[in-house]
Amino acid sequence: MERVPILKIGDILLVSIQVDMSDQTAVALQEDLAERIVATGCHGVIIDITALDIVDSFVGRMLSTIASISRVLDAETVVVGMRPAVAITLVELGLSLNGIRTALNVERGMELIAAERADQGDDEFDYGPDTELTASP
């Protein structure tokens, strides 16, 4: 069985699917990614499907599952590079890709994840006006 390589770039794991995946390969990728997220502490996962000429219900479900697993492990998933014909087919097939964020390419995917983390960072340190008042002399 082929395995899909997972690359670490800074705080992001990048998966570029270059093979016509069997269902087993897809399931293995799901498990490998979960392990790598925990091992590296990465906060972002980008899955590049530029090379995929179809996404059927099995692969679609795998993408949704990866997004859910990542979220539980404190990482954002963005799927990038979907071909127009694949998008048209997915919609007609009836797949909604629940919970999946998408971007046109890897670069935009990285920007999306960075923006997402920045927003979360702001929230964490925003103690509101009350805190500021009590902190002043």
Binding site: D53, I54, D56, P84, A85, T89, E92, L93
Partner: peptide, 9 residues
């Protein structure tokens, strides 16, 4: 291309 993609899917 779209029809190829649909039938392969």
């Amino acid at each position: 291309l779209v029809d190829q993609t649909k039938v392969v899917t």
